[in-house]
C-alpha cells in the first residue's frame, strides 16, 4: 500500500536532509507507528505520505513515494486528497470554519468530492458514531473541547474513505482526557483491518497497545523497524533521543537487580509489565 524508495528530502534553503535514503514498505491494513525525537523526520514523513512534501513545502525530493499505487510527486494535492487523509496536532486549525454544525463540517470533504446527498448522510452518521460524536452532531465545531475537535478532524477525514490515514502527533496539543478519547478511536481503528494507518507519536505506551509495527526515525534515517515489543523495549532507544516507557524502565531496573535476567523481551505496556513481574 505504501512504498518509499530511497527517499531523500531537503526543505528549501536547508543543507541537511530531513529524510535520508528512506526505504520502506507498509502493507495494506497495517497500523504502523513512527517514533523519533523532535527533528527526526516524523512530521516530514507524514507530510511526504500525504504529498505535502514536495507540493506544499517545495524543496528537493529524490526517490519515490508511492501510496496506493499513486506516485505522490507526480500527482496533485487535489488528486491525493481522496486517497490519503492527514490529521495533525492542532485541532482548531483543522476546522474549516465554513460550516456551522459538526455534521456539516464532516460533510465538507464529501461535498468537495461531489458525493451525492443520498450517499453522504449515512456515511456521515456512520463516521460520527465511530468517533462517538453523534450527540454533538448539531453543535458548532467551535463549541467542542480539544479532544472532541480532534475526533471531529479524524471523522472529517475518515468519512472520505481514504486508503491511508496519516496522523502526525494528534494528541500533542490535547489534555489527558482528550488524548485518551483520541487513542480510543485509534484503538478501534486498529481493530478494523481495513485501514492502513501511519501514526507519528511520542507517547510510547499508547503506541505499544495497538500498533502492529513500529518504525524508528533518527535524523531522517530509518533506525528501527519491528513489532512494538521488540522496538520499544530496545536499549538503543535512548541513543536516538527517546525514553523507554516506565514499564520498560522498571523491568530493566528489576533485571539489573537479578529478576528474570533471562528474559530478552522487556514489557512495554501495563499488561506486559504485569506479566513480567508475576
Amino acid at each position: 500500500m505504501i512504498s518509499l524508495s530511497d527517499v531523500t528530502y531537503h526543505y528549501p534553503r536547508s543543507d541537511s536532509p530531513a529524510l535520508s535514503n528512506l526505504s520502506l514498505e507498509i502493507p495494506a491494513g497495517q497500523f504502523c507507528a513512527v517514533i523519533g525525537a523532535n527533528g527526526s523526520g516524523k512530521s516530514t514523513l507524514c507530510s511526504a505520505l500525504a504529498g505535502f512534501v514536495p507540493h506544499f513545502y517545495r524543496g528537493k525530493l529524490t526517490g519515490s513515494v508511492e501510496v496506493a499505487g499513486i506516485d505522490t510527486a507526480g500527482s496533485s494535492l487535489a488528486e491525493l486528497a481522496g486517497t490519503v487523509g492527514l490529521v495533525f496536532a492542532n485541532p482548531f486549525n483543522q476546522i474549516t470554519g465554513a460550516r456551522f454544525t459538526v455534521r456539516e463540517e464532516v460533510a465538507f470533504g464529501l461535498e468537495n468530492l461531489g458525493v451525492p446527498l443520498a450517499e453522504m448522510e449515512p456515511r456521515i452518521d456512520e463516521v460520527l458514531a465511530f468517533v462517538r460524536l453523534t450527540d454533538l452532531a448539531d453543535q458548532s465545531p467551535y463549541a467542542l473541547s480539544g479532544g472532541q475537535q480532534q475526533r471531529l478532524a479524524i471523522a472529517s477525514v475518515l468519512v472520505m474513505r481514504p486508503k491511508i490515514l496519516v496522523l502526525d502527533e494528534p494528541t500533542s496539543q490535547l489534555d489527558p482526557i482528550g488524548s485518551k478519547e483520541v487513542f480510543a478511536v485509534l484503538r478501534d481503528l486498529a481493530a478494523t483491518d481495513e485501514a492502513t494507518v501511519v501514526l507519528a507519536e511520542q507517547k510510547l505506551e499508547w503506541v505499544a497497545t495497538f500498533a502492529d509495527r513500529v518504525l524508528g526515525l533518527h535524523k531522517g534515517k530509518l533506525v528501527a523497524d519491528g513489532p512494538p515489543a521488540e522496538v520499544l523495549s530496545s536499549l538503543t532507544l535512548t541513543k536516538y533521543g527517546l525514553e523507554p516507557t516506565r514499564y520498560t524502565q522498571a523491568a530493566r531496573a528489576a533485571q539489573a537487580a537479578g529478576w528474570r535476567t533471562d528474559e530478552t523481551t522487556l514489557p512495554v505496556t501495563l499488561e506486559q509489565a504485569v506479566e513480567f513481574f508475576r
Binding site: A78, A81, G85, N112, V115, L117
Partner: peptide, 26 residues
Amino acid sequence: VDIEERAIALEVRAFGRSGPKTSLLV
C-alpha cells in the same frame, strides 16, 4: 503560523479539487 495549517487542512478535505460540488444543506 495558523495560515499554513489551515491551508493544509483545506487541501486534505479536497477543497482544491476542481469539478462540481454537492451540498448537505438543502
